Simulated scan of single mutants.
Amino acid sequence: MNPIAVPPSTVPSPDAPSWADTLIHSRRTTLPKRLCGPGPDGAQRNAILAAAAAAPDHGQLLPWRFIEVPDTQRERLASAFASALLARDPAASAEELEQAREKAHRSPWLLLAVCRVRGGDPEVPAHERVLSAGAAIQNMLLLTAAMGLGSGLTSGKALVSDALRGLFALHADEDALCFINIGHVREARKPRPRPPVDAYFSRLGDGTPATA
Rank of each mutant, 00 (worst) to 15 (best):
E95C: 10
A210C: 08
L153C: 15
P196L: 08
E96G: 12
L112P: 01
G37N: 03
P40A: 03
A146P: 05
A199C: 02
P122A: 14
G120K: 05
A176G: 11
L110M: 13
T22F: 12
P125W: 12
H25V: 03
E75Y: 07
D162C: 04
G156R: 03
L167P: 00
R74H: 02
D89I: 08
G183C: 08
G120L: 07
P209T: 04
A53R: 10
F168C: 00
S83F: 02
Q138W: 06
V185Q: 06
A126P: 03
E128P: 00
V11F: 05
V69H: 03
T72I: 14
S9W: 06
T211I: 14
F168L: 15
P125C: 12
A199K: 08
D71E: 15
C36T: 14
Y200R: 14
S18T: 15
R106M: 13
A78D: 11
R101P: 08
R203T: 11
L110P: 02
A52F: 04
A16K: 06
I48W: 00
V124E: 09
S202L: 10
Q44V: 04
S161W: 00
E187V: 11
P70M: 07
D198I: 01
A47G: 02
I48M: 03
P122F: 09
R165P: 01
G150P: 04
V124R: 03
T30R: 00
L131C: 13
V130H: 04
G42W: 02
E128A: 10
A169C: 11
R165K: 12
A92Y: 05
G152C: 10
A169Q: 13
P191D: 10
A43R: 04
H58R: 02
H171R: 11
H184V: 05
E123P: 01
D121G: 12
C115P: 07
T72V: 13
L142K: 02
F179V: 06
I137Q: 01
L31T: 11
N46Q: 15
Q99N: 14
V117K: 03
R203L: 14
L35E: 01
G59E: 08
S9A: 15
G119N: 08
V11M: 11
F179S: 06
P3C: 06
M147H: 08
M140E: 02
G119V: 04
R106W: 12
F66W: 13
V6D: 05
G59R: 05
A104F: 07
G207D: 06
K33E: 07
I180G: 05
E187L: 04
L131S: 10
A169V: 04
G39K: 00
S83A: 15
K103T: 08
E96C: 13
A133H: 03
W109M: 09
H171G: 13
V11N: 05
D71W: 02
L23P: 00
I4P: 10
W64N: 01
I4Y: 12
P195C: 07
V6E: 07
Q138V: 06
F168P: 02
R34N: 04
T208F: 03
V197I: 13
I137F: 05
N181A: 00
A80M: 11
G183Y: 03
P63N: 04
P14G: 13
A158G: 11
A50W: 05
P191A: 13
R101V: 09
G205Q: 07
P3I: 09
P122T: 13
R34H: 09
L112V: 12
T208A: 09
C115V: 14
D21K: 14
L110W: 09
L112K: 07
V130G: 09
Q60H: 15
R186H: 12
D162N: 12
